[in-house]
């Protein structure tokens, strides 16, 4: 089973460029209907399929995303 991960999005820094959406292999990300204080639709997490691969964070031009991934347990 794939290791589970999670992300934290700094919505105030997000400019809604959508580059991370296509980088995510599990379609975890989508644009919000709401806007942040600068008027940009920001990225939100829409499901719990995240594996912590960090692809979204690596392509993000504004370093918005922090990625966590659970430690591999023995036997996996």
């Amino acid at each position: 089973m794939a290791r589970k991960g999670d992300i934290v999005i700094n919505i105030e820094r997000c400019k809604g460029c959508e580059v991370c959406l296509s980088a995510c292999p599990h379609e975890v990300l989508a644009l919000s209907k709401e806007v942040n204080s600068k008027g940009y639709h920001y990225v939100v997490k829409v499901n719990s399929e995240c594996t912590g691969c960090a692809n979204c964070a690596i392509v993000c031009p504004d370093a918005v995303i922090t990625v966590y991934r659970e430690k591999a347990t023995s036997g996996q």
């Binding site: 991960g5 960090a54 990625v67």
Partner: peptide
């Protein structure tokens, strides 16, 4: 999910 977001699980930050 809450327990995944902890400093020892951090893989990427600015």
């Amino acid at each position: 999910e809450k327990s995944i977001i902890s400093p020892e699980n951090l893989v990427y930050e600015k």
